[in-house]
Amino acid sequence: MMKNDIILSGVGGQGILSIAATIGLAAIANDLFLKQSEVHGMSQRGGDVQSHLRLSDKPVSSDLIPYGKADLIISVEPMESLRYLPWLSGNGWLVTNSNPFINIPDYPPLDEILKEIKKIKNHIIIDADEIAKQSGSARSGNMVILGAASPFIEMPYESLENAVIKLFGRKGDQIIEANLKALKAGREYSK
């Protein structure tokens, strides 16, 4: 049985929903069952946001992932990746951006956050902002992180690429290319 329970995390406005949408489109193309719970409304204003994304070849019942059952945390912000550890399973992977989003006065020192992340058995810390810049689109950091997480998502990599093409289709070839490049660069980093 195939089951991927994924928590996406970040800060409101960082665009975790486009990562979710990409995985979602790919899941549909692979005929998988899917539930994806999102946060809308008040918390979106610079607060912490998360999305529970559940993929399976069997129907998914709960919209929420139970504690200790997530296979993967994909985070676009390092401190936020730690907020969801109660959900991460013992063998689960944590993939996070290394660049902090500091909008609170008591944000902890980054090196201490990274030290905590490194305590997790399976972790990948990636400077997605820098890699995105090198790929030619500073705004595609999301896709770098998704690329870095892609080896742990049980779907053919090509289906994620196709989803990116579909998702950004209306924005023109240049944007599609930049996002595909970012996705690839992230994947290369993890492999």
Partner: peptide, 28 residues
Amino acid sequence: PAIVAKAIGLPVSYGQDVPSLVKMRPPS
């Protein structure tokens, strides 16, 4: 899922505690 597991007498799975350095990030 955890509340319901407890109500029907099943063990509740759990990952790791959130490290104490993680701060609240209220909307702003």
